[in-house]
Design a protein around this nucleic acid. Structure first.
Lengths: 352, 352
DNA sequence: CTGAAAGCGCTAACAC
DNA sequence: GTGTTAGCGCTTTCAG
């Protein structure tokens, strides 16, 4: 088994001092070409590998970025994470992942991550953190980026939730629907609250009276209600309203929409003939299921989050930047926009 | 901003030597209770945080496990990763993630990861690595675990692909189908090859002649052909066979199955009335789409992978273990098994 | 250009 | 029990 070769071994072998070895290893120009060659030759021959942690200790930096993510089983996080990972490795950093079940848990991880020198920067995903943690972070002076959440003291990348909900709802109304309901996630989630606002504003702006009975949320609390069962449950509740039931719905996530669709199917409703639906996210299945939805540029958000974080790392005094992406309406079949068009006869709907 | 406080600061403040400080910080029992209290009090007051890399350098271990994953955009990896992450943090290790586009790239990362002391163990996902890399790893003497791939010299966790394919195909045949085809992924992928073998064996065992024309693979190479477009393309090819087209298919992944279903829908075929389908993976959408499929215990695989790796780390001479999970057949509607049962009238199929 | 030496912050062996 | 000291492996002055 390969013994651990250090710069001392190289130095001895090449007949130089360790300082010089270190220089060539770090491409420091002030080394005679000949010496340089000799040293790198030896290094290669001994298949030298630097000791990362010794370097990090001496250099006083970690070349590591960590991401704290509420469990990344969801497509949204996956996609963002993909962008993050791509950019992180492009910059040559390591990515260490902390999965938390819920924002509350984040605190433990924050403490871990705050260990001096451990990471050069942290990204928090969809994390509404208590003020105490926020100020801990702030005074730690560590570069921090927020994705899908906002706080005045840190850079953030987010999505215009209210705006997206507004667009989705308006689309439904423009299609002629007057009785439109909303399936929301739990109100503890900021995106959920914002989307509700957008929904409400759209209704009111179109002269349709808003009422709390128009909004339901399932009991399933996983992912703050952004889960399939929650959608199923909420829709079942709506169905129970009988003739009072809206015939168009804005649903706060695609995954809930799929649950809702299952409920609708079960009860014999057709989509979009009987019920029109618009989701939110544009996860991969949405395309598959022909779901009309609001697209969030997830991958891009990840990329930008890292770019921003890296610039802050190199320039801590940069002014704080908040970037908001606007979701795009992707019209497919579930909203019924194509119902009477020739291209997409309703009888061919995939949404049964 | 918090200055960096070291054990020297604590020692001075508490009027003791750094050795003692280190001891209480590491819960070394041989410290007088009173001293201990005083020290930990000071540590808390100064809100001391250890310097991870100094510790790692001194301890000569990293408390880090890394996972090399071919881009984890797929549900399969996500799920496995979820299990991995959960277990890793349970053991108190850090998880550093390396995303690679393809196995070939793995080599760079292997080199990075092999930097002395960098990680205590590595997990490779679905990675068919060149022998050169394999032996590099072997002689590095670093604990390594393979997930979804197998090699004699390392622990591995995998799925009985051939067996699963066999079961899936047999199920189709038992349902009365004689003309059954297969949509495969690219043959560079080991799982793909194994599933093909299972398919073939099932056919032959049931007295149905196998022919290469029964198997097709789309042109899309992303994820080795385990992608939606590939399924779509392959099915289109089958459809082009006209009356020669099989009326039942085993498809090597759910995601391909969805592509195939789209193609079928487009051409007016009904599922399962006209065409029966069995997929592989049991991703979340499979349930949603009522797809009959072979379930892989993804989360569990991740958990076990870490457990195994950790035991190897603490006991390097443990004999090499290969664990194979058997996929389970999950019968839903796409195979047509319920077509004539009362519970699930074919007219209610969601698979159009 | 290059060698020597002083850390980086912590652990652990060794005395007292 | 506790202080002292010698590393861990590398970077970075500081002379020369």
């Amino acid at each position: 088994m390969a013994k651990k070769v250090t710069i001392y071994d190289i130095a001895r072998e090449a007949g130089v001092g360790i300082g010089t070895v270190s220089r060539v290893l770090n491409n420091n120009p002030s080394v005679a070409p000949e010496t340089r060659n000799r040293i790198s030759e030896v290094a290669k021959r001994l298949s030298y590998q630097p000791h990362t942690y010794a370097q990090r200790l001496a250099r006083q930096q970690s070349e590591t970025i960590s991401a704290v993510i509420p469990f990344f089983t969801s497509y949204f996080f996956m996609e963002v994470l993909r962008g993050v990972q791509e950019k992180v490795s492009e910059f040559g950093y390591d990515l260490v992942l902390y999965g938390v079940e819920h924002a509350d848990q984040a605190e433990n991880y924050v403490a871990k991550a705050l260990q001096r020198g451990k990471v050069d920067g942290i990204l928090f995903f969809s994390m509404k953190m208590p003020d105490r943690v926020l100020s801990m972070l702030k005074e730690s002076n560590l570069p921090v980026g927020l994705v899908d959440s906002v706080s005045p003291s840190f850079d953030s990348i987010s999505v215009a939730n209210a705006e997206g909900a507004y667009a989705a709802t308006s689309h439904l109304v423009e299609l002629g629907h007057r009785k439109v309901g909303m399936l929301n996630a739990r109100s503890v989630s900021t995106p959920a609250t914002e989307r509700l606002q957008g929904f409400r504003r759209a209704l009111e702006q179109q002269g349709i009276p808003y009422s709390d009975s128009l909004v339901k949320c399932g009991k399933s609390t996983r992912h703050d209600g952004f889960n399939r069962d929650s959608g199923y449950e909420a829709m079942m509740d709506f169905i129970a309203m009988g003739s009072e039931m809206p015939n168009a719905f804005f649903i706060s996530s695609d995954i809930q929409a799929f649950g809702a669709i299952a409920a609708l199917n079960e009860k014999g409703f057709r989509i979009p003939e009987d019920i029109a639906i618009v989701g939110f996210d544009d996860i991969e299945l949405a395309r598959l299921m022909r779901l009309t939805t609001m697209r969030q540029p997830m991958f891009q958000m990840g990329v930008l989050a890292i770019e921003r974080l890296v610039s802050r790392m190199s320039n801590p005094d940069m002014e704080i930047l908040h970037t908001t992406f606007s979701p795009t309406l992707i019209v497919r079949e579930s909203c019924g926009a194509f119902m009477s068009s020739e291209g997409m006869p309703s009888t061919k709907s995939r949404l049964r």
